[in-house]
């Protein structure tokens, strides 16, 4: 068993564009739930709108990428308003159910055959990111060493993605430390108390939902650029759960929590999968087991993640960077 290979793969995944995409989505979700207390289970819907808004503009309408990205992010704001206006008055469990439903409605519509002309239906849309890679000022060739070798374009995506992660973290930090953020955190604690003090809580929640949604939309944009395409199978409800898992691992209502959580999530996921691949390649395993493990590493790692989430909640519910003290003060 080659542990350096496993570790290398895991670290590569933890630093890769997927981790940055998850970090962005988790930063948005952290604003939603960690700070504003909004139980959003439709985060993948925002990612999908960001990605598809961009891709449709470029691939279907032949427009510019630089028009498509703001359009995709604008769709995220529209989705936040459409979702929030009717449901933010309701109890948080209703909000959770509505958001997961709304995101899935959109995905089913996007992948349906009547929508094929616009969205590519089940086939998605391709070659959308040329103008993004044209901006790549890094020299051609391959960089790095060993497992950590990247092409110029891969490096370019990672560079942009991680810069966005830093910018969005700073944005959320600045907002949360402002009087606006104080009201938002107050709403998380007790909405009625804040309403009784003259604050329009629904407006604050809508704003938080929209900002967090746009950050998730950026995650979707990066995903589309990274793959130079979009496909509806990348936006299944499961993705929202994974983003939740990353956020919870890192710790709610902290600045670094979502970023570290996302890196940890991909590190562990790829680490486990890599381990299983190495393990199933060992010659001495019984045939049944080796055959079973072959190709099963994805499902096994997610199943283990399920166990991990249960154990985390039972033993260490505040996450890696959360404060245990806060947990007992919460509702």
């Amino acid at each position: 068993m080659e542990f350096d290979v496993i570790l290398g793969n895991a670290a590569r995944a933890g630093l890769g564009p997927q981790a940055a995409i998850f970090a962005l989505a988790a930063i948005g979700l952290n604003l939603h739930f960690g700070y504003a207390g909004l139980l959003n289970f439709g985060q993948v819907g925002f990612m999908m709108l960001g990605a598809y808004g961009t891709a449709i503009t470029v691939a279907t309408w032949g427009g510019s990428l630089w028009l498509g990205i703001p359009l995709g992010l604008g769709l995220c704001v529209a989705f936040a308003l459409a979702l929030g206006v009717p449901t933010l008055r309701l109890r948080s469990d209703y909000f959770a159910i509505t958001t997961i439903a709304a995101a899935e409605i959109m995905r089913l519509l996007i992948r349906s055959s009547p929508a094929t002309e616009l969205t590519g239906g089940p086939f998605g849309l391709q070659t959308i990111a040329n103008s993004f890679y044209d901006l790549n000022f890094l020299p051609d060739g391959r960089f790095g060493w060993g497992t950590f070798t990247y092409s110029s374009n891969q490096l370019w995506v990672m560079l942009v993605a991680w810069i966005l992660v830093c910018l969005c973290s700073a944005l959320v930090l600045g907002l949360i430390r402002s009087p606006w953020g104080r009201v938002v955190r107050a709403i998380r604690e007790d909405e009625d108390a804040v309403r009784s003090l003259g604050k329009n809580t629904v407006a604050y929640k809508l704003q938080a939902l929209a900002i967090g949604g746009v950050i998730a939309g950026l995650a979707g944009v990066i995903d589309a650029l990274q793959q130079s395409g979009v496909g509806s199978e990348n936006f299944e409800p499961q993705v929202t759960f994974f983003v939740w898992a990353a956020l919870i691992m890192g710790g709610l209502a902290t600045t670094v929590g979502p970023v570290v959580g996302a890196m940890l999530f991909w590190f562990l996921r790829e680490g486990v999968e890599s381990f299983i691949r190495e393990f199933s390649g060992l010659g001495w395993l019984p045939d049944g087991l080796a055959g079973f493990l072959d190709g099963a590493e994805g499902a096994i790692s997610i199943a283990l993640m399920g166990i991990g989430l249960i154990a985390l909640m039972a033993l260490w519910p505040q996450g890696v960077f959360g404060r245990r003290r806060d947990l007992h003060l919460g509702t």
């Binding site: 759960f241 499902a299 997610i302 399920g306 166990i307 991990g308 989430l309 909640m313 039972a314």
Partner: peptide
């Protein structure tokens, strides 16, 4: 809620396996 999400991921993917 997170515990049930974990449980759901676990059971679903064990069933897939």
């Amino acid at each position: 809620m997170v515990v049930t999400i974990g449980l759901s991921l676990l059971v679903r993917h064990v069933l897939l396996l």
